[in-house]
Simulated scan of single mutants.
Amino acid sequence: MKRLILPALLAACNQEDGDIEGVKRVQNEGDTHQEGRITDAQTPSAGGPHHPGWQNCGVYDRPLYDEYAVHSLEYGAGWLTSRLDLPTGQLEALKKLVEGRPYTVLSSHETQLAPLVLSAWNKPLEVQAVSDPRVKSFLQKDGPGGEAPEIGALCSGTV
């Protein structure tokens, strides 16, 4: 089956304006499909082995399984996670930022330490507040797209 790669995603991926300050570069081993729970040293995970089903892009009011969200990262989605205790005002501001954005997943995460973690394939960024200007920069530069192995694959129709 041939995959359609959206021109807008290609434009976002080809930006040459350098890395955003604080973005970590991680090298997850492999992008294989694997059933069951997967343990990763990084929380939330930003790549590596993941479930064969991907997480539908959208806004969620509960934590998700990393294994599904990582599959969405493989497809070029950005995954924004917040601690469970993120103040309501910040959570609402974050929802407004991602509302209507294609290839974006927003959820809380039970075990992360930073208030917010923005993840693209192998590129997590921890921030303290939604007002941090790097949040918008990250959404424009690294999510959607970034360096994901299968940019443009479906971000709907499964979990």
Rank of each mutant, 00 (worst) to 15 (best):
N56V: 04
N56M: 03
C57I: 12
C57N: 07
C57A: 15
C57W: 00
C57D: 13
G58W: 10
G58E: 01
G58K: 01
V59M: 13
V59Y: 04
Y60S: 12
Y60V: 13
R62Q: 14
P63W: 01
L64F: 10
Y65C: 12
Y65Q: 15
Y65F: 15
Y65M: 14
E67L: 06
E67H: 07
E67I: 05
E67V: 09
Y68A: 10
Y68N: 12
Y68H: 14
Y68R: 05
Y68G: 01
V70M: 06
V70Y: 08
V70C: 07
H71A: 06
H71V: 04
H71G: 12
H71Q: 15
S72T: 11
S72L: 13
L73F: 09
L73Y: 12
L73Q: 11
L73W: 02
E74F: 07
E74V: 06
E74Y: 10
E74R: 14
Y75R: 15
G76T: 08
A77F: 05
A77K: 04
A77W: 04
G78I: 01
G78T: 01
G78L: 00
G78W: 02
W79P: 09
W79E: 13
L80A: 06
L80W: 03
L80E: 04
L80V: 14
L80K: 03
L80C: 03
S82R: 12
R83P: 02
R83C: 05
R83N: 03
R83F: 07
R83L: 03
L84A: 10
L84F: 08
L84K: 08
L84I: 12
L84D: 11
D85Q: 12
D85V: 03
D85K: 11
D85F: 05
L86D: 06
L86N: 01
L86E: 03
P87A: 04
P87Y: 00
P87L: 03
T88D: 11
G89W: 00
G89I: 03
E92W: 06
E92R: 08
A93I: 04
A93Y: 05
A93T: 12
L94A: 13
L94Q: 07
K95Y: 03
K96P: 01
K96M: 11
K96F: 00
L97K: 14
L97F: 04
L97V: 03
L97N: 13
V98T: 00
E99N: 15
E99F: 14
E99W: 10
E99G: 10
G100V: 03
R101Y: 05
P102S: 06
Y103Q: 09
Y103V: 02
Y103P: 08
Y103I: 07
V105G: 07
V105E: 02
V105C: 14
L106W: 00
L106M: 10
L106P: 04
S107I: 06
S107K: 12
S108N: 11
S108T: 15
S108A: 14
H109L: 08
H109D: 15
H109A: 08
H109T: 08
